[in-house]
Design a protein around this nucleic acid. Structure first.
Lengths: 247, 247
DNA sequence: CGCTGCATTGAAATATCTCAATCAATGTGG
DNA sequence: CCACATTGATTGAGATATTTCAATGCAGCG
């Protein structure tokens, strides 16, 4: 089942079998994307949304000089552009980080799901709101933390999200972001990102192995440096998702 | 009609009369809030959402030292915490800026609306996604602009939003944010916000009158300094909101 | 072998913060 | 009406964070 990770770790009571199946059946096609390929350009009219079966996607906005600001990272189990269903076009670009496998879901199919399964519709709405909650925390990260804290916070967030879907082994950070990606996500220059990583290494928090590979040595310290508190990710341990369960 | 500004300027085809009326009837109570009062604390369990009839509300996240980072500003016609309906608790605090008039809408009533009016439900979903789009632009602002650009961008955004609901006269900026609020929104110190305002004044872009009053002198220059492009606000001139109109 | 892309480092320039002080407007109690 | 406190705006000067520019190292790869 390709969509089995949707909202995994987020809903106390899973979606019903019939709803899961309906979502699965709404998948029109499965495609793969090579690293660093664009999936959607800002402003493009959309007919489909994409769900990540495996891999990492980046969302970004460009400034006047063409410099990128990452505004989101999506991992296995995430819908990347479900908000494209009500909005019909995106205000940002979407592209792959490494090799990615995507499930394509036509908006027509989503319309059918939403009509037929109100509970699933609510779950989808919720899923887009999780994105918004992460955006808010990114604002916090950029507005209140220094470069080292921003990088730490970003890594902490991704680790937490990977835990939800069972993609983190407690040590090897499996998202191959380069230092320039961290720079683009954290609003600093690549040079300064590099120096911040050095500090984190010297403090024994993590160990960058090059080429995007990072070994996490001290998760507690990482969370502390990034002032990371994961409650905004609405994990099921934290949240009683009443609105989704009172059916 | 208290909720008449909901999504004003955003939907090419207005909501149907019956839907507008249903929304209006869902209002349980109208309350007023004195300046600088807290409406919702982070983590609090919610039973209601609030719509702004008149006034400005601020949303913020606090850092470890208690410093605030604004993550959103809501003006007349906005639902402040509609995302509280699917999420049931917020990851941020909400408070008033000046005197505010709010329409209280119980989540039970929203559940009724969503069940009965699928089109209105889609509009509500869309409305929460507008928030997310603004969040993304705030990330961009903090990550890619300097202090002056950030302040300019913020003011440009608010002006554009006020235009949607007919609350901007082309000159007097009617949102009484203090310099410290700009600082908290833009991730800079109040002192530096002050210096940035001085630069903007010296450039003839705007004229701060003290106590939150600002006269806008050159909107074009303001937009340029903030690299502001308002398409992310999904105004009806820009967007064909097909998903909401194909009924 | 000589690319190329990424990581790393140094040194100087710039942006922003911190601390401290002043000023103007406003409100309050006597 | 005056003395005083409060709040927000403003300015200066030195400290710190981050950028910029430039150079080097290192690995994979045709």
């Amino acid at each position: 089942m390709r969509t089995q990770l949707f909202l995994k770790g987020r809903l106390r009571h899973d979606l019903r079998a019939i709803e899961k199946q309906a979502l699965e059946d709404a998948v029109d096609d499965v495609i793969t994307l090579a690293p660093r390929k664009t999936l959607v350009e800002r402003g493009e009219h959309l007919e489909n949304s994409y769900y990540i079966v495996e891999g990492t996607m980046l969302r970004h906005i460009d400034d006047r000089r063409g410099e990128r600001q990452l505004v989101g990272i999506s991992v296995s189990g995430d819908f990347i552009d479900l908000h494209g269903f009500p909005m019909k076009r995106l205000d940002h670009c979407v592209g792959s980080l490494g090799h990615v496998t995507l499930a394509k879901v036509p908006h027509k199919a989503i319309a059918g799901l939403v009509d037929e399964f109100p509970h699933l519709a609510r779950a989808m709405w919720f899923s887009t709101l999780l994105d918004a909650a992460m955006h808010r925390e990114w604002i916090f990260r950029l507005g209140r933390l220094n470069a080292e804290g921003r990088i730490a916070h970003l890594i902490s967030e991704i680790i937490e999200r990977l835990k939800f879907v069972g993609k983190y082994d407690g040590k090897n950070f499996p998202v191959p972001l380069l230092q320039r990606d961290y720079a683009e996500a954290c609003g600093v220059t690549p040079v300064h990102a590099n120096r911040s990583f050095r500090t984190l290494r010297e403090r024994g928090v993590l160990d960058p192995q090059g080429d995007g590979k990072i070994v996490i040595l001290d998760e507690t310290a990482l969370n502390k440096i990034g002032e990371f508190e994961g409650d905004y990710l609405y994990g099921e341990g934290v949240l009683a998702l009443d609105s989704l369960t009172d059916r």
